[in-house]
Nucleic acid binder design. Structure first.
Lengths: 87, 87
DNA sequence: TTGCTTTATGATATTTACATCATAATAAAA
DNA sequence: TTTTATTATGATGTAAATATCATAAAGCAA
């Protein structure tokens, strides 16, 4: 394990983990986050537990409230995966 | 100019722009992307034009098909750069 | 144990994204 | 121009996310 390369999100679970980690790091309850994000506590619970299909904007709201940012970048050519673009 | 730091996404429009840019860069039509992502061309059109409320998983599907990755990170404190974790 | 806080869950109603089709508008070639 | 490829748009039906409430389940202190 080289480092903290775990902000990568490719599934609803990844999102949930990232959000929960950030919230806990800031010692916010789901309810406190709900208040400052406008997303309901019940919804936050589901998202943190990886419920699928969450709307982008809900994630944006939570990220904003948690001082998180979302970046979209080219996938860095990984180690063992050998998938080639036959462009 | 240090680098291309414009993959930041905080609105549906940002997502749309990133996706369209990547698709064009790879010279794919919306239909071609639709085929390889499982997302319909009509839906791709709307997303690229910033339609709100898109489901996370739809974005994931498109990113996967375009070799893009989504990262969630702490918002880097701007200019005055003494940020402390009072852990 | 009790009591308090936090998180999860169940139900309902509204809203909306997406699939799907058809097609219109636009762009690009020919 | 005409033809073809691409993108956008409009309509419909279904599936599902979220707001909202009520409450159950966990967790944690006293």
């Amino acid at each position: 394990m080289v480092g903290n390369m775990d902000q990568l999100a490719r599934t609803p679970n990844d999102i949930g983990h990232a959000l929960r980690a950030a919230r806990k790091q800031q010692r916010l309850s789901q309810q406190a986050l709900a208040t400052r994000s406008g997303v309901w506590q019940e919804t936050i619970s589901k998202i943190e537990n990886g419920s699928p299909g969450t709307r982008m904007e809900t994630i944006f709201d939570l990220c904003a409230a948690l001082n998180l940012e979302i970046q979209i970048t080219e996938r860095s050519q990984g180690s063992t995966d050998f998938l080639e673009d036959t462009l």
